[in-house]
Each structure stands twice: as structure tokens, then as C-alpha cells.
Nucleic acid binder design. Structure first.
Length: 513
RNA sequence: GGCGGCAUAGCCAAGAGGCUAAGGCAGCGGUCUGCAAAACCGUUAUUCAUCGGUUCGAAUCCGAUUGCCGCCUCCA
């Protein structure tokens, strides 16, 4: 379909609101194939993703998972869906209980601290907030009533005051992971002595509280005794509570396919007879090679905060983790983060150039360039979130527009169009910075830049270079352009054009467009 | 032992039977610049781990080989 106006009118109207067919194809772990994405409701999408356990700050593996679910949510919004994204945060399991005990604080106090840290980390990564971050500790009643239903239906049994799920009763068990129950290695990674199941392959729904847990008030009174829930029923209960018996997309890392998602499916489907989710989407992890220095988390994982402490920005981490297709593993290296930094810096400079380029004639090819960007971006993302190809469309666009700016400047209408198009793309990517300037807090910087300009005019090159170096030490990189110097804060990517010649107020004098 | 994945330029990474093998980073030559940087122009894979096979045609399909990696029960 070729639009006579190059697609321009779509920029000012709600872009995809009227589109019924999603056009999106998603790789479903359940079928091991790419499937046409069709949500249950025409214009709504429900997403459930597994969040972190509130016992440590997030590491890179979790970052990638979080960024991927963010990408899905953002792209669904971009396509005009009303998105409900629910992400659980685990605050009631072995690790949080143990952590709280070690720290000598209540479970709630302990997990609250990590919850706040998690929210900060989400902001660092520019992740759009989910609709809700439910906690298992606030859904125990739901878990207990689910367990009752499972017992009634014969899917669960009690043994020594713990309740287990009997997987032999659930015929679809193993469908998601493709696992052959007869061939798994029992006892390899689980201490069988700790449980008294009828079949070691069964999993725990409600677990008899230990003495320590009883002492710390971590137990829930039931007719079977004092218990606390197991991990699998937590997710199943919260997903059903917040999104109903079935939601559209369930996403997390591949490591959770078995047994966690398999068990969540077993629980919910045994009760409702309906699939827990229609699309199961799993991303590959981040690999950290053993030679790399280990991170600060308890198990030596590299955390987001480690990287921030080392001077990397959340944007760099975001771009890096997003830039590879989600179904392929990413290998960590510092070199990749600095490559990401350079790429982002180029994008920032391009945006500033767009803001402050000299006036020029209307570019007859701008509409075409925007149309190409849009088509290729959407086409790529629709193909199972092929983000590398989608990014290529962005870079092709920047090159095209850059060239034009250098050749003949930019008309104000073209500038607005280009910024709007980039804004649309960035609503999905979340990696660009559009701020045309900083607030007044940086007068010192401005003064130094002006001093340098005066030195340059006076041909005092040594002085000018000293000032440039001084600014760089302050984290300010000065870039001279035909339109005057712009500067960029190296750390934050914020930037501003100084030269009055290209003051935005003068833009209106651009040729008629 | 079982199941699954991956191998494309100096590095990263798309492409999944047929338009000159996207794009990013780094490099090199040129334009611009007081010098830089950025930007722009040009350039960097006759070839996609290896060996066979199917086909008019293969990086893409099949088989074998090599090398990496993930999962296989309460750790997210």
C-alpha cells in the first residue's frame, strides 16, 4: 500500500487505533512456532510477567527480562492496544524469608527495601510502569482457596500437613517445556529428603511452615495446619486474580519454562479448564563469561547497580540489552557497553542537530524517508520483535536526514515531521533523548562556552583548547558546528545548542514551507 | 543420559531457498574545521564453522563433523 501523502497524515492522527489485524507474529513457546497474534479482546492486551524476588537488587539477566516485557508492552501500545501489564514481585519464598531472618528485620520491612530499589532500577532503565506489581504475601487467601479447589477436584493431596500437586493427574503436563517426565534426572538438583511427596516429581502448593517461620510469624492458618505457599501457586493465583482465567501473553526468561511455568499452567488449568495464557514468550538470558569480574549480588551476578556505579548509564544498558533479538543469548562485555554508548551519543547529536539546524528549503523526500522508517520499523517489529532490523530502519533514517541537513538545512515543517516520527519510534525503544536544552542550572557551563567562543574569535587557540579540555573534565563535550557550538553532557546525554545564530526563537524566519 | 539452541567482516548483529549479504561499533582515505570532534562522501565478507548432499539456484533445506551454550523440580 503506497499512501499518496507518504503516510504523513498518520503522524497527526491516532496511528493504529482503527487497525483490527495486529499483523504481529509472535514465537509461541507452546507451539515452537511463530503465530499470528490475536488478542482475546480486539483492542486490549493483557500481559503477565514474572518480576524479581525481593531479596536482592536486579542483575543483568533480570534486566533483560524486564526490558523485553517492557518492549512488548510498549510495542502493543504503539499498535494501539490498551495494555494491562501485571508483574509480580516475590516477597514470600525461601530466599526472602531467609534474607529477612539474616537481616534481623520483618519480612515486610526486608522486602519493602528491595521493592523501592527495584522501582528505582526500573526508572534507570526507562521501563514503563506496569499496571500493578502484586505481592504473594497479599494473595495468600487466593492461594488457599485455589488449593482447596485442587483438593476437591483430586489434583492435590495432603501429606504431613503440606499440600502437593499430583502431576500424574494433569494430562497436559509437559506440553510447554516438551519435557519427558520419564527421562528427567531425579534428585540431581533437589534434595529429596526435604519433602515427603508421594511422587518426587510432584510439586508443593502449600508447605508446612518450619519452626523458624512459625517463630517469625511467617505462617498462615489453614485447616491443614500452619503453612506458607510455594512459588508456583503464587504466580498462578496472582495471574488469575488480576487478569482472569486466561491472559494474552505470559512472558519471562527461558529458565522459567520448566518447571515454573509448567506448574503454573497445571494449577490454573486444572481449576479453570482454560489455558493460563495464549502466548508464552520467553527470552534468552545474558551470559557472563567466567573470566569477567563478578558482581556484587549474593551469587556473584553482575547487577544493574554495579554497572551504574562503574559509570555506565541505564540508557546504555537498555540499548545494549534491547539491541539483540530476544531469542538469542547476549554475552556481556564492557566493549559492547561502550559501543552502545557511542551509538546513543550519535543519536543524541542527531536529535540536537535536528533541533538546531540552519533553516533550509522543504525536503521533497522527507515524507518518503518517514514513510520508509515507519514501514520498515513496523514490518520488523511485527516479525516477532525483530529489533535489530527495526533499529536499522532508524539509522537509515538518521543518515538520510543528516545528509540533507548538512547539504541544505532543514525547514521547520520537516523538522517537526522528523521529530514526530522519531518520537513514535522512540515510544517503543525508549532510548532517545529529545530535550532540546537544559534548564538554567548550568550557567557556569554556558559561561565557559561563551569564553571559549570569544577566545576562538580572538584566535587565542591555546586558551580555547584549555577551556574545551576543562569542560570535558566537567563531563561536557563541546561540538562545533556550522551553526555554532553545541554541547553534550557525556554522562547523561543531555545537550544544548548555545549559538544565538541558531536560537530557536529565530526559527520562524525559515523559508515558507 | 534426555531435550533444545547457536556458529555471518576486526568486534557486535540482521537476513531463513533467487533483487549488488541490512544496520551498529571500530578502522582507513577525502570534505569541513584554527586544531579536533561531530556530520557528510568513499572504503572494509565473491562469501556466511568444516565436509558432503538436494536444487537451474543454498548463508538459508538435508546429513555428518567440529566448537560453544541453555534446561532437565521448589533457585529466580
Amino acid at each position: 500500500m503506497i499512501l499518496p501523502d507518504g503516510g504523513e497524515r498518520y503522524l497527526s492522527t491516532p496511528l493504529f487505533k482503527t487497525r483490527k489485524k495486529s499483523g504481529l507474529r509472535v514465537y509461541n513457546t507452546l507451539s515452537r512456532k511463530k503465530e499470528e497474534f490475536v488478542p482475546m479482546q480486539e483492542d486490549r492486551v493483557s500481559i503477565y510477567s514474572c518480576g524479581p524476588t525481593l531479596c536482592e537488587v536486579i542483575d543483568l539477566v533480570q534486566c533483560r527480562r524486564l526490558l523485553f516485557s517492557d518492549l512488548i508492552g510498549r510495542y502493543m501500545e504503539f499498535k494501539g492496544y490498551d495494555v494491562t501489564h501485571i508483574m509480580n514481585v516475590t516477597d514470600l519464598d525461601d530466599r526472602t524469608i531467609e534474607g529477612a531472618e539474616k537481616a534481623g528485620v520483618s519480612l515486610r520491612e526486608f522486602t519493602d527495601g528491595f521493592y523501592d530499589a527495584f522501582m528505582e532500577d526500573l526508572d534507570s532503565l526507562n521501563i514503563v510502569r506496569a499496571a500493578d506489581y502484586p505481592r504473594p504475601s497479599e494473595h495468600v487467601d487466593d492461594m488457599i482457596s485455589l488449593t482447596e479447589k485442587l483438593l476437591e477436584k483430586g489434583y492435590a493431596y495432603e501429606k504431613l500437613r503440606s499440600i502437593y500437586f499430583d502431576i500424574s493427574r494433569f494430562k497436559d503436563y509437559g506440553k510447554l517445556s516438551g519435557i519427558d517426565l520419564d527421562k528427567i534426572r531425579l534428585g540431581k538438583t533437589v534434595d529429596l529428603d526435604q519433602y515427603e511427596k508421594e511422587n518426587p516429581k510432584d510439586f508443593t502448593l502449600l508447605k508446612r511452615s518450619t519452626l523458624n517461620e512459625l517463630k517469625n510469624g511467617i505462617f498462615f492458618k489453614t485447616k491443614w495446619g500452619n503453612v506458607r505457599p510455594g512459588w508456583h501457586i503464587e504466580c498462578a493465583a496472582m495471574a488469575m486474580k488480576h487478569l482472569g482465567p486466561t491472559h494474552d501473553i505470559h512472558t519471562s526468561g527461558v529458565a522459567l519454562i520448566f518447571p515454573h511455568h509448567e506448574n503454573s499452567i497445571a494449577i490454573s488449568q486444572a481449576i479453570t479448564d482454560k489455558p493460563l495464557a495464549n502466548y508464552w514468550v520467553h527470552n534468552e538470558p545474558v551470559m557472563i563469561d567466567g573470566n569477567q569480574p563478578s558482581g556484587s549480588s549474593e551469587n556473584g551476578q553482575l547487577t544493574l547497580r554495579d554497572l551504574l556505579d562503574q559509570g555506565h548509564t541505564g540508557r546504555e544498558v537498555r540499548y545494549w540489552l534491547l539491541s539483540r533479538h530476544y531469542r538469542k543469548p547476549i554475552f556481556f562485555s564492557r566493549a559492547k557497553l561502550s559501543a552502545a554508548k557511542n551509538t546513543i551519543s550519535h543519536l543524541d547529536k542527531f536529535v540536537q542537530k535536528l533541533h538546531y539546524s540552519r533553516p533550509g528549503p522543504v525536503d521533497p523526500e522527507m515524507d518518503q524517508a518517514i514513510y520508509a522508517l515507519r514501514q520498515k520499523f513496523i514490518g520488523s517489529m511485527d516479525d516477532d520483535f525483530n529489533i535489530a532490523a527495526a533499529l536499522a530502519s532508524l539509522f537509515q533514517f538518521t543518515r538520510r536526514v543528516n545528509k540533507k541537513i548538512d547539504q541544505s538545512g532543514l525547514s521547520s515543517s520537516d523538522r517537526e515531521k522528523a521529530l514526530a516520527a522519531l518520537g513514535r519510534v522512540n515510544s517503543v525503544l525508549g532510548i532517545m533523548n529529545f530535550e532540546p536544552r537544559l534548564g538554567g542550572a548550568d550557567e557556569a557551563v554556558e559561561e565557559l562556552i561563551q569564553m571559549r567562543e570569544q577566545a576562538r574569535k580572538a584566535r587565542e587557540w591555546d586558551k580555547a583548547d584549555d577551556l574545551r579540555q576543562k569542560l570535558l573534565e566537567m563531563g561536557i563535550e563541546v561540538v562545533d558546528t556550522k551553526e555554532g557550538p553545541i554541547w553534550q553532557s557525556v554522562g547523561t546525554g543531555k545537550s544544548k545548542m548555545i549559538n544565538p545564530k541558531s536560537n530557536p526563537a529565530l526559527r520562524d524566519q525559515n523559508p515558507k514551507s
